[in-house]
Amino acid sequence: MSKKNRIKKPSGKNKGRQIPAQATPPLESSTDNENPSFRFTYTDENNWLLSDWKSSEINNLIQGLKKIEKYTWAQIKTHGSKKPGSLVGTGYKLISSHPSLPKNIPEDIKLSEMRIDEKKRIFGFRVDGVYYIVWFDRDHSVCPE
């Protein structure tokens, strides 16, 4: 092998230098900067069913989910208000007092509610960036305020 084709040995000049911080952003353990996706793995087959909704209500739900998908989890957590004069947003909140969950739901989940509109809600839980929908509440009857 000729000298031209040999790989040069590293010189000691770069010893002790670090890669710039901008080149290696810190790893985030949270998925709050991600947009949500929705899954139906744990949807209850006995209570608060999507099949009970009218087609116009389902259309509103789809539009609401599309709107929610545009936000990050960090934005969703702080979005929405029921104060007079405020815009109604997703209204994401954790629920501590709720009806019994289906048996296939893991015991350690934290149930939450997301507002679709003034009356309609979805209830479920978040694992990383995924929101697992458990109930479709068309008339605010799962956890009335």
Rank of each mutant, 00 (worst) to 15 (best):
A21K: 03
P84M: 09
N14Q: 03
S55N: 09
P144R: 12
W53C: 10
K77Q: 10
H79Y: 09
G124V: 07
V127L: 06
I109V: 15
A74I: 13
I68K: 06
N104Y: 05
D52G: 08
T41M: 13
D108E: 13
T43R: 11
I68Y: 02
D32R: 09
W73Y: 11
F40Q: 00
I19H: 02
E113K: 06
M1T: 15
D52H: 01
K15G: 05
V142T: 02
S29I: 04
Q22T: 13
R138H: 01
D108G: 06
I68N: 03
S56W: 14
D128S: 10
D117L: 12
L94D: 08
S96M: 15
G80C: 01
D108S: 09
Q22V: 15
G89I: 11
G91M: 01
T24A: 00
S30N: 11
N33M: 03
P10C: 02
G80W: 00
P99W: 14
D32M: 02
K8H: 07
D52Q: 11
N59R: 05
K82F: 04
I58A: 11
R121V: 07
D128H: 02
D137P: 00
L94C: 10
P102G: 03
E113M: 14
D44Q: 08
G12C: 08
G129F: 00
T41L: 10
D44M: 01
Y131C: 06
Q75C: 11
T90Q: 12
S96Q: 03
H98G: 03
A21T: 12
S55L: 10
L101N: 02
L49M: 04
N33S: 05
Y131A: 05
K66P: 04
A21F: 04
G12K: 12
K66R: 05
E69W: 04
S29M: 04
F123W: 03
R121L: 07
V127G: 06
K67S: 04
C143W: 11
E145W: 10
S30A: 07
P144F: 00
Q18E: 01
P84L: 11
F38L: 15
D32H: 03
K4Q: 13
S96T: 15
Y71I: 14
N35Q: 08
V127C: 00
T72W: 02
I105C: 07
K110Y: 06
P25S: 13
T24N: 14
W53M: 12
G124T: 08
L65M: 14
W53Q: 06
G124L: 00
D52L: 04
R138Q: 09
F125T: 10
Y92I: 13
N47P: 00
S37T: 10
K54R: 12
I122F: 07
I7D: 02
K70S: 12
W73G: 13
K119I: 06
P25W: 03
P106L: 15
K3A: 13
Q75D: 08
S96E: 14
S86C: 14
S11V: 00
E57H: 08
S81F: 11
V88Y: 05
S86Y: 09
K93R: 15
Q18K: 10
M1H: 04
T24L: 09
I109R: 02
L65C: 00
N5Q: 10
V134H: 09
W73S: 01
D117C: 07
C143I: 10
R115M: 10
E45S: 13
T90K: 12
S100R: 04
C143E: 10
Q75K: 01
I7K: 02
